[in-house]
Amino acid sequence: MIVQEMMKTDVVTLHKEATIETAWKLIRKHRIRHIPIIEEDRTLIGIISDRDLRDATPSIFHENRNLEELQKPVSEIMVTDVITAHPLDFVEELSTVFYEHEIACIPILEKKKLVGIITERDMLYTLIQLTGALQPSSHLEVKVKNIAGQLAEVASLIKHHKTNINSVLVYPSKQENYKILVLRINTINPQKIVTELKNAGYDVLWPKEAEVQQ
């Protein structure tokens, strides 16, 4: 997946002359944590976060507000050394950037101009989507030998049941010669598929059956 497909294009921005007070109001109104600062032609020149604002105006939480501080332009407190990305970057790479730089928001630029934004929250949401858990489905977990064609075999068995696969993840197993396939399949009743997988010699890790004394 590329950044373009998941970025938010409707971005709340400010010009560098805007006051800190305006920035505060926007952050509260839109319940956001970052505002990119741009030129008239949308060139990115900086970014401010709710934390920058708080550091700059510690006294606004007291009774006698310091109005002077609030009237200063955002350019005085914005961060200008901004980590950005391009719409055609890969989402997978971007998640590494979030992780390594410990940042919560990445402006997306095309020819230095702001075209979108991605927050850590958007990133997480995309990952949740990748796990398939947002569409009605059951979890199926199968341990397979680490050789070619195993995923295809499991998938074709599921296909025979006219059951859609919502997502597939492949994890390394603790045992070196095995891998674990985690699928979300679009059925409330995975039992038939499980039985067939077992009959075909697969180790089904989930669903497990409750042990009932008869």
């Binding site: 398939g132 858990a133 947002l134 569409q135 009605p136 489905s137 059951s138 979890h139 979300r184 059925t187 409330i188 009743n189 995975p190 989930w206 669903p207």
Partner: peptide, 9 residues
Amino acid sequence: TGRYLFPGT
């Protein structure tokens, strides 16, 4: 929990 069981939500 939908962690494993249908529908997941």
